[in-house]
Computed example of a mutant assay.
Amino acid sequence: MKVLQFTVPVAIDKSIILQKDVLPYFYPYLHRHQEVQLTWVQQGEGTLVADNNMHAFRPNDIFWLGANQPHIFKSDPSYFLPRNRKKVMAQTLFFNSDGALSALFNLPEMKPLKNFVLQQQSGFKVPTPQTTEISACMLRIINTSGPEQLMHFVELLRLLSGYPDIAPLAAVNKKVTVSDHDGIRIGNIYNYIMHHYEQPITLEDAAGQVHMTPHAFCRFFKKHTRRTFVSFLNEVRINEACKKLTDGDYDNIATVAYTTGFNSITNFNRVFKSVTGKSPSQYLNNYFQHVDQG
């Protein structure tokens, strides 16, 4: 894996690029592109890595990714198993406000929406109560063309810009500059952790994946991710634990702890609270309260 500067195919007669994916798993490379991306996950689950932050995704989640924001929709490991019959499905909209749409965004009437786009460089997840409204608007864009499609696109931006308190996907707005060479290393580390998080992983194991000494690896990882390797590994494990808890496929919290790489329930509870701000039981209660209210 590397941070690829991805080129989105652009149709000659289109300023808004639409893409429908029906695949065994999502595009497996950490990448970025000049276009803003709005992805509606219709089928599939896994972890979205945006910059250096992780977010679980499930069917009907919608994510905005800023221009040139490194990201990867990492499908759950089960999607890569032999004889896997699972599929992912997504609808994605790409646009470049500095490209073919620049004349539109430079109109005085579009200033609020242009400012909104510029302010969302760190991306965001569409709030759950608004996913039905936004997915319906995306379908109107997909199913129309010409001026009508452009009108629906402007309406989409208007709706998104009106939602209060949108939380960014990445905690910081300042982008970390990553060369292709370092991007390869970071991508390999992410890939290794996401496929082996349930197993014991030592600092030496991770450093060996990129052929570095543990000391050099620690400095490299902290420089490019602004966190320690252990804190990143814990976040991956807790992110997976949150998905397992809310999916309801496990009998108890202890089972979830041991299947996400923790060797004691005490340590799991401590790390879980440090990452989420809640105990596992509080997290579950809060999650299902929101589900019931929805």
Rank of each mutant, 00 (worst) to 15 (best):
F105M: 15
I141K: 03
A171F: 10
R158Y: 03
T132S: 14
P147W: 05
E133T: 05
L169E: 10
G162L: 03
Y163P: 02
Q120Y: 04
L169F: 08
K125H: 08
A170K: 05
L150F: 03
M138E: 00
Q149E: 11
Q121A: 14
Q130W: 13
A167L: 11
T177L: 14
F105Q: 09
T131I: 05
G146N: 12
A171L: 05
Q119Y: 03
N106C: 06
S122G: 11
L157C: 12
N191S: 13
R158V: 01
L169R: 05
L159E: 00
G187D: 08
N143Q: 13
I166M: 10
E133V: 12
N143M: 10
V154T: 12
Q121Y: 07
K175T: 09
K111N: 09
S179W: 12
N115Y: 02
V172T: 10
R158I: 02
S122H: 02
A136G: 00
S161D: 01
V176P: 00
F124T: 08
R185D: 07
V178D: 07
P164D: 10
L139W: 00
N106E: 10
R140D: 10
P108I: 12
L107C: 10
I166R: 13
L139I: 00
G183P: 08
T132E: 12
N115G: 00
P127H: 02
K111L: 10
V178N: 10
E109H: 06
T144A: 15
G183V: 03
V117S: 04
E148C: 04
G146F: 12
T132N: 13
Q149Y: 07
L139N: 09
M110G: 02
A136V: 04
L156P: 03
R158A: 13
E155T: 07
H152S: 06
D182A: 07
N188A: 14
C137R: 09
Y190N: 14
G187C: 04
I142A: 11
V176I: 14
N191T: 15
E155W: 06
K114L: 08
L159H: 06
S145T: 09
I134T: 04
N106M: 07
P108F: 01
I186V: 14
N188I: 08
A170F: 02
S135D: 07
A171Q: 12
F116K: 07
A167H: 11
E155C: 08
G146C: 09
N143A: 05
R140S: 13
L150Y: 07
A171G: 04
R158F: 05
L107D: 10
Q120L: 03
G123R: 09
N188V: 13
H152C: 02
Y190T: 09
L169M: 06
S179C: 08
R158T: 12
N106V: 03
N191V: 02
G123A: 10
Q119H: 10
L139A: 05
L159P: 02
Q130Y: 15
E133R: 11
I184Q: 13
F124M: 02
K111F: 09
K174G: 03
E109G: 00
K175S: 07
N115K: 08
